[in-house]
Design a protein around this nucleic acid. Structure first.
Length: 401
DNA sequence: CGAGATTCATGTGAAGTATACCTTTAGGCTTAA
DNA sequence: AAGCCTAAAGGTATACTTCACATGAATCTCGTA
C-alpha cells in the first residue's frame, strides 16, 4: 500500500501535466489584455482619470450579469491607475469590497468595519455605535490624506438586504472629510437594481453608468482560446471542447467566468483520472462537479438552524412529490430540533430562514395563496436530485443525527 | 348565477428581548521617587 | 503621586421573539334573475 503510494508520487512527477500555467485560468487571474471590453475599459478610465489631477471623479455604476467582465474590468483599470499613481506619487487610495460575502459585508456596520480594515484599523464585531465607526473611518481617511475610490462589488445584494441608507451616508461623507474626496464605483449584477434606490441617491450615485452586455458565444470562444494558449500545454484540448464550453456558457447569458471555471475543472478532472487530454466528456463532468461543490460549500457554511430547516425540507415524507408548505416544514423542523437538542426557533424566524435559503438558490420558495386554505410558501428543492443523498449525509453529520 | 364577504395559513413589519461584546470610569493595588 | 489592572456601568449590533396586522384567492352567502 505505502509502497505503491511512493510509486504514485514518482509517476506523478514523471507525468506531463495538462497545465502549462494553471494560474492563468484561475478566477483570481487578471489577464494582461481583456478581450471585447475595450469600450467599457476606456469609459471607466476616462471617468476615473480626474483623480490623477486631484479632482474628484464622478461616481460610476457598472451593470451587467455575472461573468460579463465587470469585476475584471474594474480590477484592470484599478491596477493601471495604481501603477501611475504610485510612480507619480499621486495621493490616491482604492478600496475594493465585495458586498456579497456573508459575514464580511452584509450589514452597514460590517461594511464600515471592512472599510476600516482597508485602512488597517480593526473594528470589533459588535459593541460600537455605527456612527462612531463612520467617525473612525473619516478619521482614517484624513490621516491618510488621499483621495478615495471605493469599489463596491455586488452592491445590489447589500441594498436588497439592508436598504439604501448606507449609500446616502457614504455619499455624504464627502462633506465631512475636508479635501479628501470619496468616489464610489458600484458594481451590480441586477439590471433593474436602480429602481430600488431613493431618487436622491440615484442621482448622486449614478452620475455615470457603464453597461456590460453578455458575451456572445464567439466572444467567449475568443476568451477561452486566449487563455488556453497560455494555460494549457499544446494539444491537450481535444476537438470541440472549446466550442462546447462556450455553448454551455452562452446558454447561461454568456457567463465567461463560468466558462473558464468549467474548463479549469474539466482539466483537473482529466488530469486526476490520468488522461493527457481534455475531452468533451470532462466538460460534462466538470459542470456536475461545479454545481456539487457550490451547493456543498454553501451548505457547510450555513448556521445550524439553517441546516436543520433544510434537513426538514430534504427528509419530509412527501411521498408523491407533493408540494411542501411552511407549516409542514416547521412541524418537522421542531421534531428535528428535539432529536438534535437544538433550540427550536419560532415559525416567524423559520419563515425568514426559508426566504434566505431561497435567495441562496438552494431551494425555491414561492409565495402562493391557496385561497380558502391560506397563504404560504411553496417549497421545492433547487438542487439536482442526484445530489440529495450527499447533501443529506453532510447535514446529518453536521447536525449529529 | 355572480358580487361581495369570509376564511385560512402564513406573510410581514415593528417593537421588544437576550446575548455577546465594546468603551469608559472608578476604585484599589503596585511601583518608583 | 503616578501608573496599571480589574470590575462595574452604560452602551451597541445582531439574532431572535412577540405582537399585531396584512394578504389574496378559494369558498361561502345571499340577493337577484
Amino acid at each position: 500500500m505505502q509502497q505503491s503510494l511512493g510509486n504514485f508520487f514518482s509517476e506523478y512527477i514523471g507525468k506531463k501535466s495538462i497545465f502549462k500555467n494553471k494560474a492563468i485560468i484561475q478566477s483570481t487571474h487578471l489577464p494582461v489584455t481583456l478581450l471585447h471590453r475595450d469600450e467599457q475599459i476606456n469609459t471607466l478610465a476616462q471617468i476615473l482619470a480626474p483623480t490623477l489631477r486631484n479632482e474628484k471623479p464622478s461616481n460610476v455604476f457598472l451593470y451587467g450579469k455575472s461573468g460579463t467582465g465587470k469585476t475584471v474590468t474594474v480590477r484592470y483599470v484599478i491596477q493601471e491607475l495604481e501603477k501611475i499613481t504610485s510612480s507619480k506619487n499621486i495621493p490616491l487610495k482604492i478600496v475594493y469590497i465585495n458586498c456579497k460575502l456573508k459575514r464580511v459585508a452584509d450589514t452597514e456596520y460590517r461594511l464600515l468595519a471592512e472599510l476600516n480594515r482597508a485602512f488597517n484599523t480593526s473594528i470589533p464585531a459588535t459593541g460600537l455605535p455605527t456612527d462612531e465607526v463612520y467617525r473612525i473611518f473619516v478619521h482614517s481617511v484624513q490621516k491618510e490624506n488621499k483621495a478615495i475610490i471605493l469599489v463596491l462589488d455586488e452592491i445590489d445584494q447589500l441594498v436588497k438586504k439592508i436598504g439604501d441608507g448606507f449609500l446616502y451616508s457614504l455619499t455624504r461623507l464627502n462633506e465631512s472629510t475636508q479635501g479628501n474626496t470619496i468616489s464610489i464605483v458600484g458594481v451590480s449584477n441586477d439590471l433593474v437594481f436602480m429602481d430600488l434606490l431613493d431618487s436622491r441617491i440615484k442621482s448622486s450615485l449614478s452620475e455615470e453608468e457603464i453597461i456590460f452586455p453578455p458575451y456572445n458565444a464567439l466572444q467567449i470562444q475568443d476568451i477561452l482560446i486566449a487563455r488556453t494558449i497560455e494555460a494549457f500545454r499544446e494539444g491537450t484540448i481535444e476537438e470541440g471542447v472549446i466550442e462546447k464550453t462556450a455553448a454551455y456558457a452562452a446558454r447561461e447569458h454568456g457567463d465567461a467566468r463560468r466558462a473558464l471555471e468549467l474548463l479549469r475543472v474539466a482539466a483537473e478532472i482529466a488530469e486526476r483520472n490520468g488522461f493527457t487530454n481534455i475531452s468533451t466528456r470532462h466538460i460534462d463532468e466538470a459542470e456536475e462537479k461545479i454545481e456539487r461543490d457550490r451547493v456543498i460549500e454553501i451548505l457547510a457554511t450555513q448556521p445550524k438552524q439553517f441546516q436543520a430547516a433544510l434537513y426538514s425540507i430534504l427528509t419530509h415524507p412527501s411521498k408523491n412529490n407533493s408540494k411542501l408548505y411552511t407549516g409542514d416544514i416547521y412541524e418537522l423542523y421542531r421534531h428535528i430540533c428535539k432529536r438534535t437538542g437544538l433550540k427550536p426557533l419560532t415559525q416567524r424566524r423559520i419563515s425568514d430562514i426559508l426566504g434566505e435559503l431561497d435567495t441562496l438558490g438552494i431551494i425555491n420558495a414561492r409565495i402562493i395563496s391557496k385561497g380558502r386554505y391560506g397563504r404560504t410558501r411553496e417549497i421545492v428543492l433547487a438542487t439536482p436530485s442526484t445530489l440529495t443523498p450527499k447533501i443529506r449525509r453532510i447535514l446529518e453529520e453536521s447536525l449529529e443525527i
